[in-house]
Amino acid sequence: MSNFSVGFRQHNGVQILDLHGELDAHTAPELEAALQKCLQNGQYNILINGRDLDYISSAGLGVFMAYVEEIREKGGDLKIAELKPGVYNVFDLLGFPLLFDILPSEAEALERFARGERPMLPSS
């Protein structure tokens, strides 16, 4: 039995993944499988909705890190919206807001997709 699940929705060509529950090293493979499914279906505009995500560890963050480059190479982006404050803190501690679009609302994230905007990985 898992305390994590992923729901799939679509909006104007954006694939939205609704994350529920707790994302840790045990449940991270489920998120990975969901992202792989998007890529196999040719969906590269991916929006993660964290409204019902209660917890995340670095294993969960690692999934985003492992896939974002491939998604951007294909012309898409992986944006993140509606994180709870405690979950956002973990993204923030590791410096994610510099490298990922993390937005307060799903509507703002969808607008950025509509405008074709995405962050660029700064060269170091």
Binding site: S58, A59, G62, M65, E70, L93, G95, L98, L121, S124
Partner: peptide, 23 residues
């Protein structure tokens, strides 16, 4: 590890110890 380097290498690991120290 540096976050940008990990992303370029498509790697997701190695941040746990850093996180523990920050927390």
């Amino acid at each position: 590890p540096d976050l940008r380097t990990l992303i370029r290498k498509r790697q997701g690991g190695g941040l746990g110890v850093r996180l523990i120290r920050q927390l």
